[in-house]
Amino acid sequence: MKDLIKKYFYGDYGDKENAGVDGSDGSKAPLDPPVPVRKGDGGWPLWEVFIRSKQGLDHKHVGSLHATDAQMAIENARDVYTRRQEGISIWVVESIYIHASNPADAASLYDPANDKVYRHPTFYELPDELKHM
């Protein structure tokens, strides 16, 4: 199957040809996908870490770390980011799978919202006697 659309990921430094590390035994298994790494990470992918500090709150981004797989990433995240009971839930995502908007486009990306002031409750003038609204 031909790749007709090339997808660019956040954190993609254009080193697709450098992705993957030579296996120590030199053999290449047929179903062996390249480990998605950037050059210079020593063969270990970069992961972004999100922590939920308390039941009821969202997961918040706290930082990043290198790990070879999800289990190691979660364990390392626990060791570094939850030493003082700062978290009850950890999400880890490989950095290359985070897609981000371009800040330079902020003006045009968010522009449609700028003149829709009727989305704000304060736009609507109602009598003071009206309660609970």
Partner: peptide
């Protein structure tokens, strides 16, 4: 240690791929 971790991760991915097919 770093090399062993990479080899293990790749091996797990291969095994996973083989099981899925």
């Amino acid at each position: 240690v770093r090399e062993a971790a990479i080899a293990y991760a790749k091996k797990s991915l291969t095994l996973k791929g083989a099981l899925e097919t």
